[in-house]
């Protein structure tokens, strides 16, 4: 990771933070409906891992906390915001919403709302890659609490049994909604849980993007070299409530303070300043630029986009004009 990369990543993470915080505002203004899960505080996880992957080549899948992963994969932030605004120009044409961002062109294979749902889907895409003989891999990001789903165990078993090219990234933010990990899970260190399936794994500081990047490089090399799945646990923290209806009442202020002292963006910023590669003024200018871009381009696009048409309500339910529905005859 060279200096230019670090500066770019700083800006990308800052953009992600400001994007999410702007979503918060839009939700309060009732421009965004449904459930909204923000990624603030966890930026180094997605950015560090995906920086180590091949963009537009590797496949990525995750849960409902998905805006930032999609954007890092290459999804246009304007389309992501338009999706949150439920507009026809949204990435899923307003039919998906915050939890279901998709950008298949950039190989972002979706956000899914059932906790643990993506585990087997990721293994399946990896099976397809293996059959076709490509060197792509699948990267599946999920939370810590998702590991208590049956799909976790079923998928890890099959992924190892058939040595599928899939990297499972556990974003361990210590909570599943309001239940702290030690109250839901018998084994606290998630990376240890996969040893039962003979899958190599590691645990890393998820707040330090350089450490995440290094750990992810190693993990991705393992998977891409054909040695089968890998499990990477990243220790992180979400600043906001689980979703917008959550006030975080179950967490102590001191715990929150401890984590905000290890903010992934501030850590990288200060490192660059210390190295003399960036000034406080540079950072402020960067922030202003990001805020302007979000307001003038992203929000403006979402605001001015049209709603989906009611006469297209049923579109996308089933394939259109598929001749095999009629026995190939039409």
């Amino acid at each position: 990771m060279n200096l230019a990369d670090k500066k770019r990543l700083l800006r990308e993470m800052l953009f992600a933070r400001r994007f999410e915080e702007r979503c918060y505002e839009a939700y309060v203004e009732r421009k965004i409906g449904g459930f909204l899960h923000l990624y603030s505080g966890e930026e180094a996880c997605a950015h560090g891992v995906l920086e180590a992957s091949k963009k537009g080549h590797d496949y990525v899948i995750t849960s409902y906390r998905d805006h930032v992963h999609a954007i890092k994969c290459g999804a246009d932030p304007k389309k992501v915001m338009a999706e949150l605004y439920a507009k026809e120009t949204g990435s899923s044409k307003g039919r998906g919403g915050s939890m279901h961002i998709f950008d298949v062109e950039h190989r972002f294979m979706g956000g899914y709302a059932l906790v643990g749902g993506p585990f087997p889907l990721a293994a399946g895409m990896a099976k397809a890659i293996k059959m076709k003989g490509g060197d792509e891999i699948v990267i599946c990001f999920l939370g810590d609490a998702a590991n208590n789903q049956g799909t976790f165990h079923e998928s890890l078993n099959m992924a190892k049994l058939w040595d599928l090219p899939v990297l499972y990234v556990c974003e361990n933010n210590l909570y599943g909604i309001g239940t702290r990990i030690d109250r839901s899970t018998a084994v606290i260190d998630q990376y240890k849980r996969v040893s039962g399936y003979n899958i190599p794994s590691a645990q890393e500081d998820g707040q330090d993007i350089e450490k995440v990047f290094k750990a992810a490089k190693k993990a991705i090399n393992h998977v891409r070299s054909g040695k089968g799945p890998y499990f990477l646990e990243l220790m992180t923290y979400r600043y906001r409530g689980h979703s917008m209806s959550d006030s975080n009442a179950y967490r102590s202020k001191s715990e929150e303070r401890m984590w905000s002292n290890r903010d992934p963006i501030i850590m990288l910023r200060d490192r660059l300043i210390e190295a003399g590669e960036l000034t406080g003024e540079d950072y402020k200018a960067m922030d202003t630029e990001v805020l302007d871009e979000i307001e003038d381009e992203v929000i403006a696009f979402a605001e001015s986009s049209p709603e989906p048409r009611v006469d297209e309500l049923e579109k996308y339910t089933l394939a259109e004009n598929d001749p095999w529905v009629y026995g190939g005859g039409r």
Binding site: F119, P120, M131, K132, G150
Partner: peptide, 15 residues
Amino acid sequence: NGYTGLGIGASFLGV
């Protein structure tokens, strides 16, 4: 549930 999901994932990529 696991292998049905695996099949679905494979179908995303043309299998």
